[in-house]
C-alpha cells in the first residue's frame, strides 16, 4: 500500500557537483506491517522518510500511497521526528499538544477533541500529565506525547525518524514495547528508520538495509520472530541473534568500504 519506486535524491551544494544522497531505492510496505530501514549513518535514511512524507520532492522516482502519487504531505500519514523537544509546542500543555492534530478535523466539538486527546494520552501511559508542559517532562515522556499526538490523528501510515535515538537504553526498551502494543491494537502501518540494528530486528516484520551514499537497497530481510515480542526472550532467540548477525555484518562491510 506504500510503494517507493526508483527514488533518487540529489542535493546541490553551494559549489561543486550535486551530492547524491539516495541513488536508487525501491521497496514496498504492505498495510499494517511494521517495516524498518537501517543503514550506515549518512545513507539518506532521513531524506528518504522526508520524501515519503511529502516534505521533500525526490529528484527522480515516485512514492505511491494506496496507488496515489505523493506530491505533498498526504492525508492519513504522519511523520514523527527524533527531535521531540523541537517538534512539540513548548507553549502548549500535553493535552493541547495531543489535541493539535485534531484541531483541523471538522465535525468535532471542543470537548470531543479533548476527550479524544485524553484517550491517547492514557494509551501512551501519560494519564495525569495532561496539564503539564512538555519541558516539564523527561525525554522519554516527551516522545510519548509526540506519539500520542501522531496516533490521535489515526494515521494509516506512521513514519518514524529515529524516534528513540536520543533516549537511554531502558527508556528505549520501554517505548519500543509501548509502540508495539499500540501498533498491534491500532493497526497502522509503520515505517521506522533507525541506526540501531537490534531495535530494527526487535520491532519489525521486515528490515530493509540501505547501502552507504548514494544509497541503494542492500537487503530485504523478513523477521520471522513470534509476536508479541519480549525484550528478553525475543532478543535471546537464536533467530534474533542470527538476523542481527547478518544485518550487522552487511552494514559493517558497507562502512569499511567507505
Amino acid at each position: 500500500m506504500l510503494e517507493v519506486r526508483g527514488l533518487r535524491k540529489e542535493f546541490q551544494p553551494l559549489s561543486g557537483p550535486p551530492v547524491i544522497a539516495i541513488g536508487d531505492v525501491s521497496f514496498r510496505v504492505e498495510a499494517r506491517r511494521f517495516v524498518s530501514i537501517v543503514g550506515p549513518s549518512g545513507c539518506g535514511k532521513s531524506t528518504l522518510l522526508q520524501c515519503v512524507a511529502g516534505l521533500m520532492r525526490p529528484t527522480a522516482g515516485t512514492v505511491l500511497l494506496e496507488g496515489q502519487e505523493v506530491t505533498g504531505p498526504p492525508e492519513g500519514l504522519i511523520l514523527l521526528f527524533q527531535e521531540y523537544n523541537k517538534s512539540l509546542m513548548a507553549w502548549r500543555s500535553v493535552l493541547a499538544n495531543v489535541r493539535f492534530g485534531l484541531e483541523n478535523r471538522r465535525g468535532m466539538t471542543a470537548s470531543e477533541r479533548d476527550d479524544e486527546a485524553r484517550h491517547y494520552i492514557d494509551l501512551v501511559g501519560l494519564g495525569g500529565f495532561e496539564r503539564h508542559y512538555p519541558w516539564e517532562l523527561s525525554g522519554g515522556m516527551q516522545q510519548r506525547v509526540a506519539i500520542a499526538r501522531a496516533l490521535a490523528c489515526k494515521p494509516r501510515v506512521l513514519l518514524m525518524d529515529e524516534p528513540f535515538g536520543s533516549l537511554d537504553a531502558l527508556t528505549r526498551f520501554d517505548l519500543e514495547d509501548t509502540l508495539l502494543r499500540l501498533w498491534a491494537s491500532l493497526g497502522s502501518t509503520i515505517l521506522f528508520v533507525t541506526h540501531d540494528i537490534e531495535e530494527a530486528v526487535y520491532l519489525s516484520d521486515r528490515v530493509y538495509v540501505l547501502s552507504r551514499r548514494p544509497s541503494r537497497m542492500l537487503a530485504d530481510t523478513a523477521i520471522e520472530l513470534p509476536r508479541p515480542r519480549n525484550q528478553l526472550t525475543s532478543r535471546e532467540d537464536p533467530r534474533f541473534i542470527k538476523l542481527r548477525h547478518q544485518t550487522f555484518e552487511m552494514i559493517s562491510k558497507e562502512m569499511t568500504q567507505a
Binding site: G54, P73, I78, L79, F81, S87, M89, N104, C153
Partner: peptide, 20 residues
C-alpha cells in the same frame, strides 16, 4: 522541525501562521 511538524499535520498556511 516545527515547520515540518506543521506540514506533516497538514496545517493550512493560515493555521501554520497562527498556531506555530
Amino acid at each position: 522541525v516545527l515547520f515540518a511538524t506543521a506540514a506533516t499535520f497538514r496545517l493550512t498556511s493560515w493555521a501554520r501562521f497562527w498556531k506555530v
